[in-house]
Amino acid sequence: MIAALLSLTALGLSLGLLLGFAARKLKVEGNPLVAEIEQMLPGSQCGQCGFPGCAGAAQALAEGKAAVDCCPPGGADLVQALAAKLGVEADLSGIKASVPMIAEVQEHLCIGCTKCFKVCPTDAIMGAAKQIHTVFREACTACGKCVECCPTEATRLTPVPVTLQSWYWHKPEAGWVA
């Protein structure tokens, strides 16, 4: 009886010491998750998530204060990636199929008010006062800020056109799955 008590106590003590030692020795400094999440976010600082820029959103996501579907420009792919990263269930039902979009200025409606290129977080709209503005495709993240501020509804988001360079095979139908 005594022997059993002693041996169990000794076992508990030594394991406890080992755990305490490991906790100190293998301590991870800081939270690398925030930086990793920030890398995954579009980085256009558009603010549609309601947080101050992508860094703020990353912080909130890492702390579980933001939903994985908080970033509209990231689309379904980002939701899935974030869900996998954070180990949570992703609800994709509310998200449109992620067709890459791009802003477009309809020339016949543009009055050259310069509002859109002032709000563009990536300087993707070029133009000057009283001149028609155009979108620099490579820089546009389709955040939609220009659409919100346009007084004549001249800016809109359209799907990125498919070219021979960007086209690739669709995913095969999975009808053969048992």
Binding site: P42, G43, S44, Q45, C54, D77, P100, P121, T122, D123, A124, E138, A139, C140, T141, S166, W167, Y168, W169, H170, K171, P172
Partner: peptide, 27 residues
């Protein structure tokens, strides 16, 4: 070939994101 195309498209998106992130920071 679907997967290769999809991966290439994701890579393009990633590169674009890096570029736009830089643009946003500069701005």
């Amino acid at each position: 070939n679907y997967a290769k195309g999809e991966l290439a498209a994701r890579e393009r998106t990633r590169m674009k994101q890096d570029a736009t992130r830089q643009l946003a920071e500069e701005r």
